[in-house]
Structure formats: C-alpha cells, structure tokens
Design a protein around this nucleic acid. Structure first.
Length: 855
DNA sequence: CGGATCGAC
DNA sequence: CTATGTCGATCCG
C-alpha cells in the first residue's frame, strides 16, 4: 500500500487531482499516458458531490496559505534573527544526540493484496487487476497501474480507465495468513519487530548483525524452494541457477518489467550446495536474505530500506521499489546527502496539505526545509516545526516499541489474561505440548518486571487449565495491592516444564519458542554490574527505561561518532540557498559544539562551571555527575524502600533518564545465557509463552479491522513507554519481596525538601513538581525566558505567552510513526505557543464549513 | 471532550 | 444504474 502517498498534488489547484492525481506513471505500451488518464478521471468525476467537496477543501487550504503568508509579512528581520538563534541552539542539541548506532530495516510487501490474489489465482496473473470494490480500491497490480488505476481510487473510475480491469474483492483472512508467514521470518531477525498494517514492518537488526558475525556459513545458507505445491516450481529452480549468476529475474508472479530479485547482487555466491545460496553478514546481505526467504515462502516479493532510523528506513524502502532495496549508511553525511534533494512529500508524515503549504514558502526539498528553519519556527506550531527540523536533519526514532498505556481494572486484566491463555493453549496444542508450570509475568507502570509461577502436579494445556492457574497468580497480585488497582503495562503468560521429549534440533519450528528466547534475553542479559553508569546516555532522544535503549546507549558510548574532519568552527548564521551548501551548513551548526560558544559551561548537575570547551569532556563530566547522583540515590531508595517512587523527569537533556537496576534472577533458567546460544538452540528452551501489550486506546473501544489481533499475537514486545510519565506513581510491586523476577528501579526521585535551581537562569524554583521544573528549564533553554512557576501544575494545556511565537498551523501535523515517540510527543506540548492567530483562523474555517454543510 | 483536519494505508 | 474508506493522532474551541 505504498502507492497512494506518492501521488503528487501537482501544482494546479485541482482538488480532484489532489486525491486522484497521477505521478510518475510510466506510460507503458498498453497503458495510458498521464494526460489521458487525467482527462478520464475528470470526466468521470466532474459535477459529483465528491468533486465539489474536494474543491472546497482545496479552497480552505488556500485560505490557510493566504493567512500564513500574511503572517509571514509581519515578521521582522529582528524576530527572524532571534528565532534563528533559538532554533540553531536546538540544532546543536539535536546534532549532539544524533544516533547512528542502530540498523533499522523497513520491509514493504509489493502491491500486497494484489500480489496475493494473483498468486492464488493463476488466471489473474497476466491481467490488470485491482483489489477492492466498485466504490473503493485498496491496491492494484503493476499492470493496472499503467492505466492509472491506483490504490484509494473508486473502482468505477478505474473501470473507465481500464475496461478490462478485474476487480477482486478483499479477502482479509487470506492476507492475514500470508502476513503471518512473513512475520514469522521477520521475527527471527528481530523478535520485537513492529508490524505496520499487514504488509509493512520495521525491524531493528542491530543485535542480529552482531551475532551474525559469528555464525557459521551453514546458518546463512538458504535453499530454493523446489517442492512448492503451486505451479511455480519450475521457475524457482531456474531461478536458482540464475540467481547464483547474479542475474535473477525475480518474482514469477508480479511484474513483467521487473528488476531482479537480488538486483545488486554482484558478489560471488557459494555454489557448493545445490539449490542453495549463502548470504553474507552485512546489513544488505541480511535484508537480501529476508527478502529471499519471504519470496521462497510466500512467492511474493518485498522491498526494503536500511537506515539508522525508522523515518529514513521507510524512505529507503520506497527508493527501489518494487522488489528492491536501498541502504543509507550510518554516517551523518550519508544521511544528509540522501535528504539533500529529496522532495519533502516523500517524507512520511508530510501529506498533500503540508506539502502545499511549504511550497507556498518556496520549500520543496529537505535542504530547503532546513534553510527555512527559523521562519518555520515562527509560522508553525512547536510540534510541527520541531518535526520539520527532525526531518531536515534526518533524525528519527531508533526504537520500535510503540507507546502503551496501562490497564488498571481487574476486570480488564483478567480478560486479557484469559485471552493470553487462549492463544497460548492454541500454540501448545498445535505443538502437542503439555506443561506443568504456569508463569505470570507482569510489568508495572514503573517498568518493573515481576514473575509469579505455579507448578501443578498434573500437566496443563487447555485454555481453561492454564487460566485457572494464571488467574490465581494474577489474583494474588491484585489482592496484594488492594484497595489500589494493580497498574500494569505488560502481561505475559508462560507454560514450561513440558512433558514431551526434546524437540528435534534445527527443525523449522514454531516461532513461539524463538520469540520467547529472544524476548527473555532482552531482560536477562542485563547483568547488575552493567546496569550502572555505563548505561547513561546523553542522548535525549533515547527513551530511558527501555532495556534495548540502555544497550544501544552502551554501544554508542563505545564508539564515538564524531569524525575529526567534522570539527572546524565556522560561522553560523548564514543562509545559503543552494543545496550543495546544505550539508556544509548543518555541519557548521553542529560544529558550534566545539567552538567558543561552549566555553563557559555550567554543569546542570553539580552546577559547577566547567573550564573545558571540549564537548566530549563536558559530556563525560555530566555523565559522571549523573552516575554519582544515581549511586547516592540508589542507596537512599533501598534504605527506605517501602516508599513510593516518582518516575520523574529531570533536566531537559536528561529528562526521563533512567537507571535500571536489574537483579539477577536465580530462578530463571535462562539467566546468564548469552543470546546467541539461546537463539541458535531455541528448542532447548522448554517453555512457551504469550505476552500482551497494553494498547494505547482501550481495546474495547477500538477493535481495528484486520490485523491488530494478529499483531498482538505474533509481535511480542518487551519495553513500552508511558505516554506521560506519571507524577505520582504508586509502586504496586513490593520490591523487597521480589526475589523471583528481575526488578528494576528508576531514580532521580524528587526529594520532599529539595530546592530546584534552574541550571540555565540559576534561579530557585518554588515548585516541587518536576514537570513544572522541567518546563521551566525547557523554556529557559529554548526561549530564553525566565519564568517563575507556581506550586500547582496543570497538565500542559497551558499556553505560554511567548514573544514572537505565533503558532500558525492550526490543523497540526501528524508525525506518524516517529511521533508516537513519547519524549517528543508529550513534554514539548507544554510549549505550544500563543494561539490567537490560529484561533481566528480556525473559527473562520468552521463557519465556512457549517455554511457549506447546510447547503 | 467532540469535531475538524491531516496523513497513512 | 449508482458509486470516493477507515483509522489514529493532533489541534482547537
């Protein structure tokens, strides 16, 4: 479902073509050319209610642009200069925290629904087809696309474009099944991968890459499928030969004008074993391997992108589609080079409206987006321009966990537990397993993990049997905190102690045990001695509390990534419009960190002035300061351990910084095992389990159509982050009793009597609310505003009266994937600028809407 | 909090 | 013969 978003809205004001429009349609021999297509669409649509509405919407956008331009006129040079300084301060901070240490992969199945239908019905293979109904199409095959038939187009119009078009009704069950097959492969590379819809997924293969280095060749060898049940076999065999010569023409099904399966495959392939291929250890090779396995298993092709964060990975997967892949190497210059001339519309989160608004400001490419950063900060809301800045610097999230909120009612918890037991029972029965031990795993709102196990004399395997035991365990936990509700964000049920013999090794097994082992390791590899200051990171983008992030942070510290030739101090505020200078310029800003601007620096922890102007040294100092504090706090907490804890924010660049203390879990058999051992021999792991994340919205409210169910079952994740870090979290797990599960604690607790001193303006703050304090520091840092805060603190809906900050973009900007990122999503919202202008805009808008409505 | 808007698929 | 979907996130009043 990659198709629709590419559609450019062209320059014309034609509302219809905004939605229907065509882009780079390669007018094939049998296809239609752009002009014809547009003409047909226009004829089919003119005069319809839909068309009128499109025009109306388009006008509203135009009005918005007009108001924006008026606002722009009023901006003085001085205001702009000030904004420039503030934004560039932020750029320095962002650059400093740039994280290139992760390898993120985005997998996107090509024309997924259509491809599945073609696979299952050979008659369709040669024809132009689309999947959907006469009213709406979900996708089309590449043949049909030549006629301009695209996703999100109504079927009746598609029929006019292409009278021979076959429209196949949607069959979600089938797609779900195929999707599951694909996910089973993906999970082997990242057990906590993140599916998006049925046909896309993000993977973090950083850890896989590390392990893979030690893998023997045979473990990287995969066989061509020669005994498929479909009629494809011959092709596959042929492909094997061709493939090894590096000239495979790939998918037997999808495309005529295809690129090859391993298009860029020039390396010498190992031919020693017939009908097999060995993949290397690089990221590219891993992704080729994934795509190869997907194709062998499902006869469908996928495109992929490899990059240091999700935003870039997604754009990469688009780069060589269909059936191709692309990588941005994890270097700052490579990232900026990729973005240099990239149209902003290609960026996930930038839709047609934002594109048009930015175009009105003369912004089309990402480098232009960067050049206009100061102006944008004055015209758009905080969230929007911050997002723009992230985009133009090529920053995105490097973790894949979604944010999840807690579920608190016992009722929900029991039903969730039952659901997990049901899933688990199904798996057990599929495998013919019966176990004796049922383990309940809970992670509370403070991310503390606790397991409770019960072993029964007779073995269990059915939903009821498991639930009976699990229910008891859960009940005990709920009772232990009564009358408070038990507040959790993850629940898992595991059955272990199987009766059956050991499974055959190297058998292509159910993914369950695989996932399980990967999952457990995430926790267990964190040994206590590792969980100290080593895990501090200065990366404000990272989300503390995630075990993954802690590990990543450690990795990052090991390899500092500031290359020597990047450290020349240069002049800052100079706007050069040419893209060639784009990288130069961002570099300059980044370089400020090493320049005189940092000469006098006050450590925000110990408040002592630092003489060094070396950034790394400063950071090291702060890290040490912080870990010093952490150690102190640790002691204090364990002394009066019964008390509650504040999971608290702290200074801006360290806010949400967590130290996680993991105690060794003696009862867990996996403890101390290293990950590769577990993964390589998952069959020895004698248990299986199911986890459930607690979705953001209450599950009852939204039961999304096709896939959330599958997603929850197949994709098991470990670490979730609170959308809003709660200020008064009761600690519902009694840590002193917790001898079984690994336990983690968060520090940076506020002390009752402490006085908070703002490290920026150096003034004492009356508040004891960390939220308030953090906001103050944020304001100080970002806006140079010194503001005294009062004791009581509302949730940040409060408007700050900030000079020169006129929020404009009332419609706001959805940030898509990377916006579910909690640190960006919540804290900053407190800084929403004055909205008088947008209020006005809004009200005129809605009047307009109402008028039209009554017509 | 509900309606409007944007964006993804 | 007709006929343009559905969701989550965000912003605003």
């Amino acid at each position: 479902m990659d198709d629709m978003k590419k559609i450019s809205n062209s320059s014309c004001n034609d509302g219809l073509l905004l939605r229907m429009g065509l882009n780079d349609n390669k007018a094939g021999m049998q296809g239609l050319d752009k002009e014809k297509i547009n003409k047909i669409i226009m004829e089919a649509t003119k005069g319809s209610k839909f068309y009128e509405n499109e025009l109306k919407k388009d006008q509203q956008v135009n009005q918005r642009i007009e108001r924006m331009m008026q606002l722009k006129e009023k901006i003085t040079a001085q205001q702009l200069l000030k904004a420039q300084m503030q934004v560039d301060k932020l750029v320095i901070e962002l650059e400093r925290n740039r994280d290139l240490s992760s390898t993120i992969v985005h997998i996107d199945m090509d024309a997924f629904y259509a491809a599945v239908e073609m696979r299952d019905n050979p008659e369709l293979k040669e024809k132009p087809i689309a999947v959907g109904s006469m009213s709406m199409l979900s996708t089309s095959n590449y043949h049909a696309r030549r006629f301009g038939v695209r996703a999100a187009m109504p079927g009746f119009i598609a029929k006019r474009l292409c009278p021979h078009l076959t429209i196949v009704p949607l069959n979600f069950k089938k797609y779900g099944k195929v999707s599951k097959e694909v996910r089973e492969i993906l999970a082997e590379y990242d057990p906590s991968f993140m599916p998006v819809g049925l046909d896309e997924a993000y993977l973090n293969i950083t850890e896989h890459l590390e392990e893979r280095l030690n893998w023997p060749e045979d473990r990287r060898r995969f066989f061509f499928n020669t005994e498929s049940t479909t009629g494809i076999d011959k092709d596959c065999i042929n492909m094997s030969a061709k493939f090894n010569e590096g000239e495979v023409s790939s998918s037997p099904i999808l495309f005529e004008d295809n690129t090859s399966l391993m298009d860029d495959n020039l390396e010498q392939r190992d031919l020693s074993v017939e009908n097999s291929v060995v993949f290397g250890t690089s990221a590219e090779e891993v992704v080729k391997e994934i795509r190869f396995r997907i194709e062998q298993k499902t006869q469908l092709t996928a495109s992929a992108g490899i990059a240091p964060n999700t935003m870039l990975a997604k754009m990469c997967s688009d780069h060589n589609k269909p059936n191709g892949q692309y990588r941005i190497s994890p270097e700052r210059l490579a990232v900026l080079d990729f973005l240099k001339d990239l149209p902003i519309r290609k960026v996930p989160g930038i839709g047609k409206v934002t594109e048009k608004m930015l175009k009105a400001l003369g912004i089309v490419t990402c480098s232009e987006l960067y050049q206009q950063r100061a102006l944008l900060s004055l015209l758009f809301s905080e969230v929007s321009w911050r997002n723009f800045l992230d985009i133009s610097l090529g920053l995105g999230s490097t973790h894949l966990e979604k944010t999840f909120s807690e579920i608190n009612t016992a009722e929900d918890q029991y039903s969730l537990c039952r659901e997990l037991c049901r899933d688990l029972a199904q798996d057990l029965q599929k495998e013919g397993l019966k176990g004796k031990t049922v383990t309940l795993k809970l992670k509370n709102v403070n991310f503390e993990v606790k397991t409770r196990a019960s072993t029964v004399l007779s073995s269990v395997s059915t939903e009821e049997e498991i639930f009976t035991v699990a229910k008891d365990l859960l009940g005990t936990e709920i009772n232990s905190v009564a009358p408070h509700p038990l507040r959790i964000r993850l629940m898992g049920v595991r059955v272990s102690g199987f009766l059956t013999e050991e499974e055959k090794k190297y058998q292509q097994k159910s993914i369950t045990s695989f996932l399980k082992s990967g999952k457990e390791i995430g926790f267990l590899r964190l040994q206590p001695e590792k969980a100290n200051q080593k895990y501090f990171t200065k990366n404000s983008e990272a989300h503390r509390g995630s075990f993954f992030d802690q590990k990543r942070a450690a990795r990052q510290l090991n390899s500092e990534n500031i290359s020597p030739n990047e450290s020349r101090g240069k002049q800052l505020f100079q706007d050069d419009k040419s893209p060639a200078n784009f990288m130069e310029e961002t570099k300059k800003v980044a370089d400020l960190q090493n320049s005189n601007a940092c000469k006098i620096f006050t450590c925000p922890v110990c408040f002592e002035k630092q003489s060094s102007n070396n950034l790394e040294e400063l950071n090291r100092h702060i890290d040490e300061c912080l870990s010093g504090m952490c150690v102190k706090d640790t002691v204090e907490i364990s002394k009066n351990d019964s008390s509650r804890e504040n999971t608290s924010n702290f200074l801006p660049q360290f806010k949400n910084e967590w130290v996680v203390k993991c105690q060794n879990n003696k009862t867990d058999q996996l403890s101390g095992t290293d990950q590769s051992a577990c993964v390589s021999d998952s069959s020895t792991d004698n248990s299986t389990e199911r986890f459930s994340q607690i979705p953001d919205k209450s599950p009852s409210k939204r039961q999304p159509s096709n896939l959330s169910d599958i997603a929850r079952k197949v994709c098991m994740k470990q670490c979730f982050f609170p959308k809003q870090v709660s200020q008064d979290n009761e600690d519902h797990f009694d840590k002193t009793e917790d001898t079984e599960g690994a336990s983690s604690s968060c520090f940076f607790e506020t002390k009752e009597d402490s006085v908070l001193v703002c490290p920026v303006c150096n003034s004492e703050q009356k508040t004891t609310s960390l939220t308030a304090f953090n906001r103050h520091v944020d304001v100080c840092l970002n806006k140079g505003l010194i503001e005294e805060l009062t004791e009581k603190e509302d949730f940040p809906t409060k408007t700050y009266n900030m000079e020169n900050s006129n929020s404009f973009l009332s419609g706001g900007l959805s940030k898509g994937q990377q916006c579910t990122n909690p640190s960006q999503g919540t804290k900053r919202s407190g800084l929403t600028a004055s909205q008088s202008v947008s209020k006005k805009a809004k009200s005129s808008n809605s009047k307009h809407t109402i008028k039209m409505f009554f017509k």
